[in-house]
Amino acid sequence: MELRQLKYFLAVAEEANFTRAAERVHISQPGISAQIRQLENDLGATLIDRSGRSAALTAVGEVAFEHARAVLAAAEALRHALDEMNGLVRGRLVVGMVTACTVTPLFEALSGFHRAHPGVEISLVEGDSAALVEDVREGTVDLALVGTAGPAPADLDGQQVISEAIVAAVPPGHPLAGEDGVTLAELSVHPVICLPRGTGIRAVLDQASAARGLTPTVALQAAAPGAVVQLAERGLGVAVLSASMLTQHPRLRTVPIIDADIAAVLSLVSAPTRSPALRELLVHCRESFGAPAHKAPAPAGRGAAGQVGP
């Protein structure tokens, strides 16, 4: 009796059909039939009733089904335990990141992890922060770099990377260009260029404005911070981004938003898990990002972790 034969037996029992079971486990139909016959010979009992149109379990097969499932589960648990002991992490990880991400420590963490554990397949997906958070909750994404208004969701494991203020940015000659600061009320009378809903920066702007009974006039929006900057440079509105997103754009004058007291936070979030691969990736992330970068809600230069993403 072999483990693969038990796997084939479970497939036939669950599909109630030899052809579908063969497709599921990627073997020919005659091949899976022969393996089940060999298993029955080894056990000295008929497990599958082949007299009807579907492949049904016999009474003995019903008993064997539960034991076969337990044996395969135990074998899988043994493999994972030994992998952890030997440091041989395998599997697949889906990593999410905010659109137009330029946070290089994330890329460094992925690179270091890949070198250490080449047996793990890594898939990288982009999206807005709100959607990525839901993907992590649903289990379709293992780890995501997201921007939020304030701390990351409490139901997820999170590592804060950076926390800073949102600011306004305008070209020379704009009415706000000579100001040392602007309130959300003063900002609301100007057309605003910002990231779309679902991003952390936009959530900060909307929530801070709503807390004061205000609704910002978002005239234009773009998914990439660079596009927001270029639109503002051409005088189409006031850019609202995080402070670090604007440090490389001297053509815009940065103006603090003095009463936007909700921080734009960039965090790594994941669901609680026992996955050895994810645990190892988180170790590399902690090494790459280092200690969380905390910034007061006021304009500041680029932090060690790079700019805050959407």
Rank of each mutant, 00 (worst) to 15 (best):
E233H: 05
P299H: 03
L281S: 09
S275Y: 07
G173S: 06
A271V: 03
G158M: 05
R286K: 10
S123I: 11
P191Q: 05
D155H: 05
L231M: 07
H284W: 12
R50V: 09
T199P: 04
G44Q: 01
D180M: 02
G303R: 12
G303Y: 10
R197V: 10
A211S: 15
A144I: 08
A100C: 13
E76C: 00
E138R: 11
L3T: 12
R69D: 05
G158H: 05
N41G: 14
G306S: 02
F65I: 09
D49A: 13
A169P: 06
A177I: 08
V228K: 00
S267A: 12
T273R: 03
P216F: 02
R37I: 11
T102Q: 04
V71P: 00
V103A: 02
L278I: 04
D42I: 07
G290D: 12
T148S: 13
G173L: 06
E280V: 01
T104L: 12
S242E: 05
Q35C: 01
A144W: 01
F65Y: 15
Q35R: 15
V95S: 03
V71C: 11
A100N: 15
A227R: 14
V228F: 01
E2C: 03
A165L: 13
A16S: 10
A185I: 09
V12G: 13
A291T: 14
A74K: 07
R4I: 14
V136R: 00
L241F: 07
S270P: 06
L106N: 07
I258L: 08
C285L: 11
H284M: 04
D128C: 13
A219R: 12
G91M: 08
A219C: 04
A11V: 12
L110Y: 10
I201M: 10
E126D: 11
S288K: 09
P118A: 08
A263R: 15
T102F: 01
L195V: 07
V136A: 00
A100R: 01
G31K: 04
N17C: 08
A13H: 07
L47Y: 11
F9R: 00
A300Q: 14
H294I: 14
V141P: 09
N17E: 02
A22K: 11
A59G: 11
D142K: 03
E66R: 14
Y8W: 12
A109W: 08
E84C: 02
V229N: 03
F65W: 14
L124P: 00
T217Y: 15
A210R: 08
V141C: 10
L6Q: 03
S28K: 05
E233V: 03
G119K: 07
R92D: 03
V98K: 00
L6E: 00
P299K: 08
A116Q: 10
G303L: 11
Q248F: 09
L72W: 10
A81F: 02
A81Y: 05
A239L: 06
R24F: 00
L43K: 13
E84I: 02
I262T: 00
S51E: 09
V204H: 05
G198S: 06
A208W: 01
G235T: 09
T273K: 04
T148M: 02
P196Y: 05
I48V: 14
D49V: 06
G306R: 01
S129I: 09
A243K: 09
H249F: 07
L3K: 13
Q307A: 14
R20C: 10
P171Y: 08
V12R: 10
M1Q: 01
M97G: 10
L187M: 12
L156E: 05
